[in-house]
Amino acid sequence: MAKCATTDQFKELDEFIDALPTKKGELIRVLHHAQNTYGYLPKELQVHIAKKMGVSTAKVFGVVSFYSFFSMEPKGEYDISICLGTACYVRGADKIVQEFKNELGIEVGETTADGKFSLSALRCVGACGLAPVVLVNGKVYGRVTEAEVKGIVDEYRHKD
């Protein structure tokens, strides 16, 4: 695990951290950047971030495990996130989740065998007016119905 700190495997991230005016209070921003850059936050990356930021690995893990946006598992090429916040939930987000599970054959938190899709659940994205909301790599789909699920998947299934 310690090896990563000595290699320049995380060079991109290090440059980002070094460019920050202060490290204090910036952990979440750094984690966001790391997840966007590497797709997920494996243990060795969290250890590296802890050292670089001068905080304990336990604290980094505490933050990573608290926010559902952060993932310790590799995500698929297309990450489908379904909002399970209160507004989306009462408007049937659970049924949307079930439909995606059926369509992709994976559980929430898993990635398809071909690495194409992963499925995750989010807490409120702040677009309650569009409930239920689905995000695919950040693109927002609002007022999604069960019938639309297959179409959304197909939109990406045949993309390269």
Partner: peptide
């Protein structure tokens, strides 16, 4: 300032634990 413990997870699953929930023996 040892940094072996932190609150992890959220809601009902929240607990004070070590990094990656390792046994304390394997932590700092």
């Amino acid at each position: 300032t040892v940094g072996a413990l932190s609150g992890i997870n959220r809601g009902f699953n929240a607990v004070v634990s070590s990094a990656f929930e390792l046994p304390m023996d394997e932590t700092v």
